[in-house]
């Protein structure tokens, strides 16, 4: 998988940033890091917090790993990546606990589980460990941005349909009957399926990129 990801790494900085946002969007196209996407996207606030937490871990680890890429021996690189990622996840976990205890409680074990997000390890292996820090940071920003956007869309849709509110503020007209199913686990699967379909529909019109299976 690393080879196929590497072969399409774009050249310039701006392209690198944009690739993660849309063309190689981690969720829509690469289908990486799905677990947190589904689990915490029942409200927009949870989704946004989770997205930002993941993106900041991604950025920080990319910077560190890319700076250390000549020092880390190839044999133990995966273990080293995981160590770096786990360190930043622990930091983020404590940070969220200090800033927003309610959200921290709602997200529960899913913040520590960022460690196991295959998106982060995948980007480290395919990109950050082979590139200078600026390129790695741009890539991390793009991928992180794409991740946040997807998560926020999903969280907003699920909260809007399932609860009639957005960021905790009721926006739907009074007669609106909430679709409880959207808040249940099943709704998460349906909403993500819809998002993936929408993503494919939209990216079908320009020349096919040969993405996805």
């Amino acid at each position: 998988m690393a080879e196929s990801l590497q072969a399409v790494v774009p050249a310039t900085g701006a392209e690198q940033f944009q690739a993660g946002l849309w063309r190689q969007n981690p969720i829509l196209v690469q289908a990486l890091g799905m677990c947190p996407v589904l689990a915490v996207s029942n409200t927009a606030v949870n989704a946004l917090t989770m997205g930002l937490a993941t993106a900041s871990v991604l950025l920080a680890s990319a910077l560190v790993i890319s700076s250390l890429r000549r020092i880390i021996p190839a044999q133990v690189r995966l273990a080293s990546f995981v160590l770096v990622i786990a360190t930043f996840v622990t930091v983020t976990d404590m940070l969220i606990e200090a800033i927003a205890i309610d959200v921290h409680r709602a997200l529960g074990a899913f913040i520590p589980l960022i460690v196991a997000n295959c998106l982060i390890l995948g980007r480290m292996e395919a990109h950050a460990s082979r590139r200078p820090p600026t390129a790695a940071a741009l890539d991390a920003l793009g991928m992180g941005g794409g991740f946040v956007l997807c998560l926020l869309t999903l969280g907003s849709v699920r909260e809007l349909l399932g609860n009639g509110s957005l960021f905790g503020i009721a926006v739907m007209p009074a007669g609106f009957e909430p679709w409880v199913v959207m808040l249940l686990p099943g709704g998460g699967f349906f909403a993500l399926a819809g998002l993936v379909l929408a993503g494919r529909w939209l990216s079908r019109t320009p020349a096919r990129q040969g993405v996805g299976p």
Partner: peptide, 14 residues
């Protein structure tokens, strides 16, 4: 691929 599997998973989850 992904989309149909997700829909199936949603039904199973229900």
């Amino acid at each position: 691929g992904t989309a149909i599997t997700l829909v199936l998973a949603g039904i199973l989850s229900l």
